[in-house]
């Protein structure tokens, strides 16, 4: 990694290339335009719109993680991946738990 030129192929894999950045950029643009078009033109019912734009956002997250942040290309053991999994578990618990308990509160009124 210190001398990217001595291992042409390896450095190509570990730092990404112009090609992978361009693919990532194009994908992220497409994944942004789809939800915008759907919401601005009211193309779908409420629930369907919700599902589609959330899927687009999650795909966009994956594009950024793999094409830009090179999640897969770090050395093993992949502490960052393990940390990220823990972070996502906490995120889902906090967001999901908050929505759940506050919805139950509303019914209580």
């Amino acid at each position: 990694m210190a001398q990217p030129n001595t291992h042409g192929h390896e450095s190509h894999e570990s730092h990404g290339s112009v090609k992978s950045y361009v693919i990532g950029f194009v994908l992220s643009i497409v994944l942004t335009i789809i939800p915008l078009v759907i919401v601005m033109n009211d193309l779908m019912a409420r629930t369907a719109t919700f599902v589609v734009i959330m899927i687009a956002a999650v795909l966009q997250l994956l594009v950024q993680l793999f094409f830009f942040m090179h999640l897969r290309e770090t050395e093993k053991p992949r502490w960052n991946v393990m940390g990220l999994v823990l972070g996502i578990i906490i995120l889902v618990t906090v967001v999901g738990g908050s929505i759940w308990i506050m919805e139950v509160n509303k019914i209580g009124y």
């Binding site: 940390g83 990220l84 972070g87 906490i90 995120l91 929505i99």
Partner: peptide
């Protein structure tokens, strides 16, 4: 990366507050 993950937790709280 671990700093970023702690930031994910910060934002998860702010997102929850907003959604609620």
């Amino acid at each position: 990366w671990f700093f970023l993950i702690s930031d994910v937790i910060l934002f998860s709280v702010l997102f929850s507050t907003f959604i609620v």
